[in-house]
Design a protein around this nucleic acid. Sequence first.
DNA 1: ACCTGAACACCGTTCAAGT
DNA 2: ACCTGAACACCGTTCAAGT
Lengths: 224, 224
Amino acid sequence: MIGDMPKRDPLTRDRVLRGAVTLADARGIAALTIRSLADGLGVKPMAVYHHVASKEEILDGIVDLVFGEIGAGIEPPAPADGWRDQVRRRAASARDVLRRHPWAVPLLESRTAPGAATLRHHDTTLAVLRRAGFPVALAANAYALLDSYVYGFVIQEAALPSDDPGGATADIMGSFRPDEYPHLVEMAVEHIMKPGYTFGAGFHFGLDLILDGLEQALKRVAPP
Amino acid sequence: MIGDMPKRDPLTRDRVLRGAVTLADARGIAALTIRSLADGLGVKPMAVYHHVASKEEILDGIVDLVFGEIGAGIEPPAPADGWRDQVRRRAASARDVLRRHPWAVPLLESRTAPGAATLRHHDTTLAVLRRAGFPVALAANAYALLDSYVYGFVIQEAALPSDDPGGATADIMGSFRPDEYPHLVEMAVEHIMKPGYTFGAGFHFGLDLILDGLEQALKRVAPP
DNA sequence: ACCTGAACACCGTTCAAGT
DNA sequence: ACCTGAACACCGTTCAAGT
């Protein structure tokens, strides 16, 4: 051969998964195909199969990568913080992360087994609740509630026409015949179209309401 | 021709969509292809395109069909009922319906415009809140919270290994190394593996907690 | 008006082969 | 050990054709 090509660093399972996340973020989960992924990695499609067994394994892998991001940017859990602050920070981090990867929550439905980062995330959150005095059964209910809220909120955010501050949503809703959907029209005109409205701002309303309710439930089973 | 074949009733948009729901329920959303759908309808693939413009339109259509089921089996809204009962019944109905069609919530992320049944469902729920005295902004927050909870809970239920009463989930979680995920193991052993446990039973804990919180929020803005 | 056959540009994946 | 080419059984969809 003529000269030494700058040897491209070899493909790894990690590079495959990170490439998949980048592609899904940029062009949507439907555009994530083995062929386009290989293209992005500068490699032929079949090279991918040397590092993952199947596309299913890629989907499992990128979901776990995303869960690994949750709590990464959070200041270390100052032990003086109450459980409320810790849970709120983690829930807010989960929502931030999942909103950046809007394809992740829908994928949960079809995943078989959660990955290591996902399990660690769940374990960490449960730890906060248990240490705060939540009995096991209440901690289970609390955690299912918190996760449901975060997942569901993210799904709704992802389903919005765009991330614009209500503009498109309001235009659509405001164009309905008022006699057909009177309350949707009212909501569009009197709320969503107001300057400064964002759907996302409602996240903290629900989160704080849930935390208040959990605090009361905890006091009921374990009076201070 | 030899004789009159019993003329198969002609394909319609409605039969296409109902066939798609049946197929997705039975074999999963991934198995819903134009070809298998046509097979189930006793027709060639291309016949489907005479009644819907694209597969995307089918997905939009079946999501709206599902939302049309919500509230269908509910007793008429006895005007004497409080908003709490009405909202609780509708949320429970939504969860029942969405659980029977576990592919529906994940589809929400990629839908562009909601259908007529979906809009009617939203309008009806908002009506209950507004009539109960929720100001527009509070009604918006309340509704986002309720929907998030229902969607997220359904996603988690769908992601469970099966609908069995914790068996498979507990087996998996109980098999972790206790030093790696101590709280997950504790939860499996002391809670999920107990006889009579079901994840779904937690739905009413969260729903009632949310309704309590909304009741307090309503009292705060509009004292009785 | 409604359905079909053949074709096109895609998929994920297998297998045998290259270095 | 790692990558590739050719092939297979699928996709959604177009187009021209049948009744």
